[in-house]
């Protein structure tokens, strides 16, 4: 239960950062925060009360492990998040080279 609200809070904080912050790097951080929120949401959807990690070994039977599918999805989403962040940061480097600023309201040759 707590985890649903925590993930909701993380997503909300991320969107807030995107809306209010002017610094491009902070906006990218906001994207990462949203990503973490979504990951937490997926994980908590897969959680089953009182059960353990889905690795079958002596002492862990299939009847007491959690849902492995959302965890697999999270693994994929983490990698996608890393990729987007890396690319976005390198684009920001290029933006900075041209505009000498990271303020998104000053980076406006084109109209929004």
């Amino acid at each position: 239960m707590m985890f649903y609200f925590a993930s909701a809070a993380l997503i909300a904080i991320g969107i807030y950062m995107l809306m209010v912050k002017k610094n491009l790097i902070k906006m990218i951080l906001g994207l990462s925060v949203i990503d973490s929120g979504v990951n937490l949401l997926l994980i908590s959807i897969g959680y089953i009360n009182g059960k353990t990690a889905p690795i079958i070994q002596p002492g862990v039977s299939p009847s007491n492990v959690v849902d492995p599918l959302p965890q697999a999805l999270v693994l994929t989403n983490i990698v996608i998040g890393v990729s987007v962040t890396a690319l976005a940061l390198s684009v920001v480097i290029r933006v900075y080279k041209h505009y000498k600023t990271l303020n998104s309201s000053e980076v406006r040759d084109l109209k929004w």
Partner: peptide, 25 residues
């Protein structure tokens, strides 16, 4: 904290036999 879904039920109970991997993820 609800129970697992139909699809995952198969992964959890048959996963080890079908794939040979102890780590279900």
């Amino acid at each position: 904290g609800d129970d697992e879904t139909v699809v995952s039920h198969r992964y959890i109970y048959k996963g080890v036999d079908e794939t040979g991997s102890a780590n279900l993820v």
